[in-house]
Simulated assay, not measured.
Amino acid sequence: MYVSVKGGEAAIDNAHRLLADRRRGDRSVPALTLDQIAEQLVLGVDRVMSEGSLYDRRLAALAIKQARGDLIEAIFLVRAYRTTLPRFGFAEPVDTGAMLVERRISACYKDLPGGQLLGPTFDYTHRLLDEALDGDPEVEPGETREGATEPVSRIADILGGEGLIEEEISGNDEPDDINQTPLEFPLSRAMRLQSLARGDEGFLLALGYSTQRGYARSHPFAGEIRIGEVEVEVFMPELGFAVPVGRVQLTECQMVNQFKGSAKVPPQFTRGYGLVFGQSERKAMAMALCDRALRAGELGEDIVAPAQDQEFVISHCDNVQATGFVEHLKLPHHVDFQAELGLVRTMRTQFEQAESAMENKEAAE
């Protein structure tokens, strides 16, 4: 019984009111609207949608506002809301080959069918603060490439045409759903990819970086990174065919890795794959690096690094679970601590008694 939290309900209510006051901030400054967040803080919204596992820009914007900009808290809010939604069906696999790309680059080929499309990116900007953004400057709309509405071929398909990259396995079995099936290791690749897709970007980024520094057998090339919209279809039993229900923006990354082959498999490139909601290419790249590292056992490679350990990666990548376990330390642990305190005091007394006895023995000698 935590007697010290008696009467805590009033304090919690006051904490909620104080939180709402701090969230609003200075009343002389106009309040943020959800449209402003959704349209101008797009990358934050995309991350919340991806790791919250729910594609809804307005709800993600609401979560960011409610969380005062704390994206992990916002992800927690979206994930919790998602659990209240009914499941009425599932979509057909999306065809990223038919993606209407806004950005598409490859580090493997300079000239490629469809060309390199830089799109909206920080890659070529100077990392200097732009004081012109202090205010509301007029910005000319960016130009849209002519013909960008046409699908472009994938780099992996080019390598596949020459037999230089492993074939994509497209099994007919329906993949397990991590929302319906408990995680039991070892996991299938489908379940690993689902977990990585909603895993914490920072954690996966650090693991992906570790593979590049030698903590795994990894020599990656960014085969292709593409950002664009794909059509989502749902099969209608009463019609007998799938119908489009909307479009979503996705970021897809195909990493190309060296593989020396084996007695049964010729030398070829292998794949690492990442696919996330919105424009989240850093997350997609980190996901692809981790996916390839987690395939070590499948490819007959020694498992010697953290990024290759399924249990380590999957059990620690979910920021909602990690946050809950870390932040539970803020909850009352008074009884537990008193037990530990009593134990340490007893052990210290025994230590001092033993030390005193040793000193007396040495003095007597």
Rank of each mutant, 00 (worst) to 15 (best):
Q212G: 15
E252F: 14
A305N: 08
S153T: 15
L77H: 11
E229N: 10
G25L: 03
L343E: 15
L32T: 04
A354G: 10
T125I: 09
Q258F: 14
T121C: 03
L275R: 09
D134F: 11
A222R: 13
L289R: 15
V78C: 08
S106W: 06
D309A: 01
E146M: 06
S195K: 12
G278V: 11
Y109F: 15
K361L: 14
A293N: 07
F269S: 11
P332R: 12
Q180N: 06
G261R: 09
R295H: 06
K260S: 14
Q310P: 01
P175Y: 08
D173F: 08
H333G: 04
S4D: 15
E355T: 12
T270C: 02
R226N: 02
E311R: 13
R87W: 05
K6D: 11
G300P: 09
P141E: 08
S53W: 15
S106M: 05
D291V: 10
A60N: 03
M49Y: 07
Q350F: 03
R17L: 07
A222L: 15
S53E: 12
G199D: 00
G160E: 07
G8C: 08
L196G: 04
A206P: 01
R226Q: 15
R198V: 00
M99R: 11
E365D: 05
F203R: 05
Q212F: 12
R292G: 02
C108L: 15
D26N: 07
H333C: 01
E131M: 13
E233Y: 13
A80R: 15
T270E: 00
L187F: 01
P306T: 05
G272V: 14
D130S: 06
G8I: 13
R127E: 14
A357K: 04
G163M: 07
V248P: 05
S356P: 00
D309S: 01
D134E: 07
V248S: 01
R154Y: 00
E168A: 14
S4K: 07
G171Y: 05
L193P: 03
I72T: 14
R198G: 02
D136N: 04
R23V: 04
A38K: 13
A357E: 12
D318K: 09
P306C: 02
T211F: 04
E327C: 10
P93F: 10
H126C: 10
G135K: 01
S195N: 14
T84F: 05
A286G: 06
R103N: 00
V94K: 02
R57F: 03
E365Q: 10
G324W: 12
Y2S: 08
L207P: 00
N360I: 13
F337Y: 14
Y209D: 08
R292Y: 14
A296P: 08
A293M: 06
L32I: 06
Q353F: 02
G7Q: 09
M1D: 12
G142N: 12
S262A: 01
V344S: 07
E298T: 04
V230S: 06
L275T: 10
A222K: 07
A206H: 04
R226P: 02
G69K: 02
M49L: 08
